Amino acid sequence: MFHTFSHCEKNIKLHIIEVGNKDLKHAVIFFRLDVDQFFSLIKNLSLDYFRIILVYRCETLSQDFLINDFLKGMKYLIDSLEMEDTHCILESSPNDEYKNSLYSSDLFNAITVCKKLDDLCLDTFLASYAQKNKGGIDFIEKVNIQINNTLSEGEPYLIKVAKKMRLTPRVLSKRIRSEGEEFKLLVKQKRHEKALALLKNEDVRLSDVAYTLGYTEHSAFTRAFKNWAGCSPCQFRKYLK
């Protein structure tokens, strides 16, 4: 079930597609993704947990376009959804003022920037939410979700995760310790889990796995993986065969 609609601000009109149950309290917003690619990506997804939103076009109505009008329109959309959690998925591309403004805003609980948006990327993103139970997501699960969402942006430092959770780094660190965990160990575990999931797909290059996990160098990923698994990523793939 889906429907299309639009929203106008003074100088801009957003064209939007919404898929899924409107009663759900969690949403993922895709931005300026090709419509055919969008439906190809979501066709095999379960929509039991997320509403899926695509902002597929931003139409400038006058030459006086201001980025503030765009952000006002996005804020209106998010507020109208009445969500508990709203996430945004962007494909990485330079020199896009729309994407840059979204990334620097505080409109979303989390923003994931993907080098290449495909089925594997989306499955990995949604995997963090698959174990949600009736009691809701506990605090450490929420931290793990934000760590997962920031991996491809580079090293998921405490200050970055705290900002996405709208906490100060000090408060976040204290709450993690009160749960008997350490932030660095949570990052290490999440990287390990995500690496194992990505390496199962032989079509994903090792360099892309390293990038997705936030490593700037392939060699750094290889060293870390050896510490986790006792073998190199390449050897691990051979074992899987």
Rank of each mutant, 00 (worst) to 15 (best):
D118L: 06
N100F: 04
E18V: 13
N44S: 13
L61Y: 08
I29K: 03
M74A: 08
T112N: 04
I17V: 14
Y98C: 05
E91V: 13
N68W: 01
A27H: 05
Y56W: 09
G20Q: 05
L71I: 15
F65I: 08
V113E: 07
E97F: 11
C114S: 13
F30D: 10
P94V: 06
S92C: 04
V28Y: 01
K43F: 03
S101R: 10
S80K: 14
L81A: 09
S104N: 09
S101N: 07
D64A: 12
C58Q: 07
D36Q: 10
N109Y: 04
S80F: 12
Q63C: 03
C58I: 09
F30I: 06
L33D: 06
H87T: 02
V19W: 08
F31H: 13
D36C: 02
N95Q: 06
Y56T: 01
Q37K: 15
H87W: 08
V19F: 11
T112M: 11
R57G: 03
A27G: 11
K116E: 14
R51F: 05
I78Y: 09
F39M: 09
S92N: 08
L117P: 00
I42G: 12
Y56A: 03
N44C: 04
D36I: 02
L47T: 06
H26K: 15
D23F: 07
A110I: 04
L77Y: 02
D36W: 00
K99D: 11
L45K: 10
D34G: 09
K43M: 07
E97S: 13
F50W: 00
I53K: 02
R57S: 15
E97V: 15
Y103W: 08
S62G: 02
E59H: 12
R57A: 11
D36L: 10
R57Y: 10
I29V: 15
D64C: 01
D79F: 09
K43R: 15
N44E: 11
T60A: 13
I16Q: 02
L66R: 14
N21G: 01
S101F: 00
R32I: 02
K115G: 11
D85F: 06
E97G: 00
V55L: 09
Q37C: 11
V28S: 03
L47I: 03
M83N: 13
Q37F: 02
L33Y: 10
D106R: 11
L24R: 14
E82P: 00
I52Y: 04
T112R: 06
V113W: 01
I17T: 11
T86F: 03
S62D: 05
C88F: 04
E97H: 08
G20H: 01
D69L: 05
P94L: 12
